[in-house]
């Protein structure tokens, strides 16, 4: 595949984000290609979560946030979109701390399909099972789908939110430090799932674990203080001579 026939799924151009008068993201531009895994690494406070929130416009909930520049998904500017609900179903989002809705496990996963208008029980059942399997949770909860999602353990709840994010068959899946509350074994299982999804959907993986980006990402972006220090193929970013020496230091943990 040559460079030119790679379709761009998301194009970010000159994006700036400020909370009140404090600018957090300073004019960044990059693309996310269709069906790739883009890793985003960077120290705390560098604006990774804020960036994701600009993509599916959940930033709208924050009254103080000011966004400028453009984010285009499939060529369409998200801020001009009429149906923001469809945008949010197109972009699945998994937050770092699990937010189980106060509903049953089943209803948690069926929430998005139902919101989109799906009511047939058979289809919903199929979706719930598929997503819970993909999130490596099915075996643990298949006998108690009716119990409250909030009653699960932290790691299980996190996997529930992953299942939920997959339930509306998103074209882009954003994971924000998904493995914070999950043990290494389960993390590996979910990483395997992500690998199988790699050629079907586009994945943006924000992670504090550099090695996770190295294992999974096709390309990796190093974000620092609201600026892109480097974005390149994962091999280059983690190689001995990335374009920027700061990248070299950060991925080796000698960042000060």
């Amino acid at each position: 595949m040559s460079r030119d026939d790679v379709r761009k799924k998301i194009e970010v151009e000159d994006l700036r984000l400020a909370y009140g008068s404090q600018e957090i993201i300073h004019s960044i531009s990059f693309d996310v290609r269709e069906n790739e895994i883009l890793g985003i690494i960077g120290p705390a406070q560098s604006g990774k979560t804020s960036l994701l929130r600009c993509l599916n416009r959940t930033i709208d909930f924050c009254a103080r946030a000011r966004v400028s520049g453009s984010v285009r998904v499939d060529g369409e500017d998200v801020r001009q979109m009429k149906d923001v609900f469809a945008l949010r179903r197109k972009i699945g989002m998994v937050a770092p701390l699990p937010v189980g809705l106060p509903l049953s496990i089943y209803d948690n996963v069926a929430f998005a399909p139902r919101s989109a208008g799906l009511t047939r029980k058979v289809e919903l059942n199929a979706i719930v099972e598929r997503c819970l399997r993909q999130a490596a949770l099915w075996d643990e909860v298949k006998d108690r789908l009716d119990s409250l999602g909030t009653a699960l353990s932290g790691g299980q709840q996190q996997r529930l939110t992953i299942a939920r994010a997959l339930s509306h068959q998103p074209e882009v899946l954003c994971l924000d430090e998904f493995s914070i509350a999950i043990d290494p074994v389960t993390t590996m299982r979910i990483e395997d799932v992500l690998k199988t999804l790699r050629r079907e959907i586009t994945i943006i993986l924000v992670t504090n674990l550099n090695q996770q980006a190295r294992r999974l990402a096709d390309r990796t972006m190093f974000l620092w203080g609201g600026r892109i220090v480097e974005i390149d193929t994962t091999e280059v970013v983690f190689s001995d001579n990335p374009a920027n020496p700061q990248t070299y230091d950060y991925v080796r943990g000698v960042f000060g």
Binding site: T58, F85, M93, F111, A112, S115
Partner: peptide, 16 residues
């Protein structure tokens, strides 16, 4: 508020 955000992030309208 996290419930509201989670619900809206899943594409629910305000009524839903």
């Amino acid at each position: 508020d996290s419930y509201r955000e989670a619900g809206l992030a899943l594409g629910a309208t305000r009524w839903q």
